[in-house]
Amino acid sequence: MSFVNYNTKEVNCKIVYYGPGLGGKTTNIQYVYKKTSGENKSDVISLNTENERTIFFDFLPLELGEIRGYKTRFHLYTVPGQAFYEASRKLILRGVDGIIFVADSQIEKMDANIKSLEALETDLKEQGYDINKVPIVVQWNKRDLPNIASIKDMEAQLNKKNYPSHEAIAMEGVGVFETLKSISKLVLMNLKGGLN
């Protein structure tokens, strides 16, 4: 759950990058980090295996500007994609305000995408969320590769609920901020609190 502090006029939101292993979640966060400037810049925290596969999470606190007088801070997390790390993946979803589902566009990854989407639904349910109420946006990543599924196919198989979707080449930064802005808008509009 987001946290609104009326005294200091701050909002904190938690955004989780979810998706199959090697789909590009960590790459998204690293790009955001690279493009962030300012004195408040924090390092990315990565809990990795030796070969840089995410074992627990990556974390990047992001100080944004103000919206209607409220200072805005986003906490970006990625989950480990591999089935093996199911237990730690579930923990990350605790308190989530919005999800970016990073799908791997390569044709042979379609099954992995579908399985991951199903896992997302189960994980959210277990944390007490209604998947229809959590803001979600989808990113079609790795659009630079030759062996990719068409957007039409991906939409048909992975986006039956018509979430906002964005094409991306996370490695080059293409679509990274578009996706993040898209979820930011949904998350902020979903914030409960009432201005009094």
Binding site: V4, V11, K35, T36, S37, G38, E63, L64, G65, E66, I67, R68, Y70, T72, F177, L180, K181, S184, K185, L188, M189, N190, L191, K192, G193, G194, L195, N196
Partner: peptide
């Protein structure tokens, strides 16, 4: 509170939030 903190948010407001981006 059960009310929304912000009602409609414009794309411009979201862009402003991210104005720090190099």
């Amino acid at each position: 509170e059960d009310e929304y903190l912000f009602n409609d948010i414009t794309d411009e407001e979201v862009d402003n939030l991210f104005s720090f981006v190099g």
